[in-house]
Amino acid sequence: MKSFIFKYRCTKETHLPRSNGYMVYSALCRWVQGTDLEFDFHTADGPPPYAISDMISGDGSSLSIDWSSPKVILKPGDWAFFRLSLLTPEMERSFVDTVAPRDITIANQPEMVLDSILGPGSSPLAMSISSEALFAGAPEAKDITLAFRSPAGFNSQGRQIPFPMPELVFSSLLWRWRRFFNDDRWSGLEDRLSQINISRYDLKSVVANGKGGAMHKGCVGRCRYDLKPLSLVDRKAIHCLGAFGAFAGVGYKTGQGLGQVEVL
């Protein structure tokens, strides 16, 4: 798994919607056209093998966003960035071999000029790790706190659920983990997720804009999950999945800016 930061310099004042991940996704789809990555960016079978953040004001060191403002307002000389995380070795190789040298324009905004693409190790948010190393480094602590940096929402029985219930969060991550790593070491874990409790939260509901006026309900903020009812083996699994979420995202529309999450 690898994450890359696309860093932009603004040449004149620019306004973007606060929730703009769908614009970044559209730009990336144009960017990869005709390359080996094109199919992966358009796949409709299961979760996407990548995750994309919104375009965020800043130098690429933090995913924190002020969701009280409806717009991202950039002045001349300001920096902005988005993060692209790739979950499979195939996508990593295609990215490095065929795509990285290209330029990319966001939402027909020529005043936003791509300055650099930062690879793993060159920014706090540009990371690289294998699934084996992620599992080996996972603790067995009795709780885990997740920070939802962009709206996290979930589909359940045809409804949008804008609250990070434990079963929804960790079943979403478990599904992705098994999908991309073909790893069944946590047999039956999905049946034990209901034992996890929420011990504390500080969340705000947010409606994210999508393509064509679509609206996606979600939440941002922090949530602490109590893992004490679980075995040590299951606690380690949950911590591993939480760390995996920093790459894969959680919930729906992770390929369009939603569900960006970090472990605190």
Rank of each mutant, 00 (worst) to 15 (best):
T145H: 06
G60N: 05
D97V: 08
S131K: 10
G213C: 07
A133Y: 05
L173D: 02
T254W: 03
S123Y: 07
T35Q: 08
L173R: 01
P47K: 15
S122T: 11
K7S: 15
L87Q: 08
L118R: 09
W175S: 15
S26T: 02
D143N: 14
K204F: 04
D191K: 11
P76N: 13
F41R: 02
A126R: 02
F135H: 07
L241N: 03
S150H: 01
D36N: 12
R9F: 12
L125T: 00
S128V: 06
R178A: 05
A246P: 00
D143K: 14
V113S: 09
I106P: 00
V113Y: 11
R102G: 02
P110Q: 08
F180A: 09
V250M: 11
G60D: 05
L189V: 04
D115S: 15
D226E: 11
M215F: 15
D36E: 15
E111W: 09
P70Y: 11
E262C: 08
D191A: 12
I144D: 02
R159V: 03
Y225I: 03
I5H: 05
I144N: 04
K253Y: 03
A243L: 10
R102D: 02
G249D: 04
Q256A: 15
E132N: 08
F148S: 02
Q160A: 13
M23K: 07
V207S: 10
A214D: 12
L84K: 01
D40L: 14
L232G: 08
N20F: 04
L173G: 02
G34Y: 08
A138R: 03
T254P: 00
D54A: 08
S199D: 10
S187T: 13
K12S: 15
A133G: 00
C240L: 13
P162I: 08
Y225H: 04
P162V: 07
L63G: 03
G34W: 08
S116C: 11
C219R: 04
G221C: 07
T105V: 14
L203H: 04
S150L: 01
D45G: 00
S116L: 12
G242S: 12
P89F: 14
S69N: 09
R83Q: 14
I238S: 02
V72S: 03
F6P: 01
S171M: 12
G158E: 07
D184S: 14
T105K: 06
L174C: 05
F6G: 01
L134Y: 02
C29T: 08
T14G: 07
V72P: 00
I196Q: 05
I198K: 10
R224I: 06
C219T: 09
L232F: 06
E190I: 05
K228V: 13
P110G: 08
G119D: 07
A80L: 09
P17F: 09
F244Q: 03
G121T: 05
A44Q: 13
M165S: 10
S94M: 13
L258V: 01
F39C: 03
L189G: 02
P76L: 13
P17C: 08
K12L: 12
V113L: 14
P48A: 13
K253A: 09
Y201E: 06
K71H: 12
L28R: 01
G77D: 06
I5K: 05
D45W: 07
R159H: 13
G21N: 06
A133K: 11
R224M: 14
K142V: 13
S62Q: 06
M23C: 03
I106L: 13
W175R: 15
